[in-house]
Design a binder for these strands. Structure first.
Length: 217
DNA sequence: TCGACGATCATCT
DNA sequence: GATGATCGTCGAG
């Protein structure tokens, strides 16, 4: 499948008030939206197809669990509408959108997306060569950031800025949304089972298959 | 200052 | 499907 051109989606920058809601609501509503990033004059855009919600101080899977305020998590506690970028496994950057009011520490992790603009640049950043399989460019939080050139220097950047912004894109209806449990948080006890992972049904660019798709094989 | 571990990815079988 | 890579962050002392 050829990726739709970014120009075919609504390029309106979402207002920061979009993020001043519970992380769960924002995570679902971010599906189909565009992340637009301009690094060193090169603009790339990705349509979000998979997210995870982290609920903040009451969520054992969140970095902010138990009101844990450290140098790293400082950004998480800010008012919604800015980026929280952190390094995982000493290797990979992960992009989150901070949600809710100041001190809530809600966040939405961008897990996977579909390139819509600057695909050739993203392929180069990922060290791939064309043609590439669906999901190879931005199917996974680490890949997503590498493709867009996002690193911790963007931690705390507003999501309506010239460097990084979330655009209206083409939101998906409720019938196209599938949800399941989050990934890679086995340490989080009961929270492992919380259905806070959201994806677009039958999308080729998901990082892993969503539960409903497993039935079809 | 030190030890343990992690919201992952690529490679190998 | 299983496993090794690799280092910043956190908490204890």
């Amino acid at each position: 499948m050829t990726a739709k051109r970014a120009e075919s989606f609504d390029q309106t920058v979402l207002p920061l008030s979009f993020f001043l809601r519970p992380a769960e609501d924002v995570a679902r509503d971010l599906l189909g939206r565009l992340v637009v990033c301009r690094i060193e004059g090169v603009e790339t855009a990705i349509r979000i197809v998979e997210t995870e919600a982290y609920l903040g101080i009451e969520d054992p899977a969140s970095h902010a669990w138990g009101n844990r305020r450290t140098k790293r998590t400082r950004t998480l506690f800010r008012e919604g509408g800015c980026a929280y970028v952190y390094l995982i496994y000493g290797l990979h950057n992960c992009l989150n959108a901070v949600t809710g009011g100041e001190g809530e520490a809600g966040a939405v992790l961008m897990r996977a997306g579909e390139p819509t603009r600057g695909a050739s640049e993203m392929i180069r950043r990922r060290g791939l060569s064309e043609p590439v399989r669906a999901g190879a460019i931005a199917g996974g939080p680490g890949r997503f950031c590498q493709a867009m050139g996002i690193d911790r220097s963007l931690d705390g950047v507003a999501l309506n800025s010239g460097v990084l912004s979330i655009r209206a894109g083409g939101p998906v209806g409720p019938d196209r949304v599938v949800r399941g449990s989050r990934i890679g948080i086995d340490y989080a006890g009961d929270a492992v089972a919380w259905p806070l992972r959201f994806g677009i049904a039958d999308n080729d660019h998901l990082s892993r298959r969503m539960p409903q798709q497993d039935r079809d094989g």
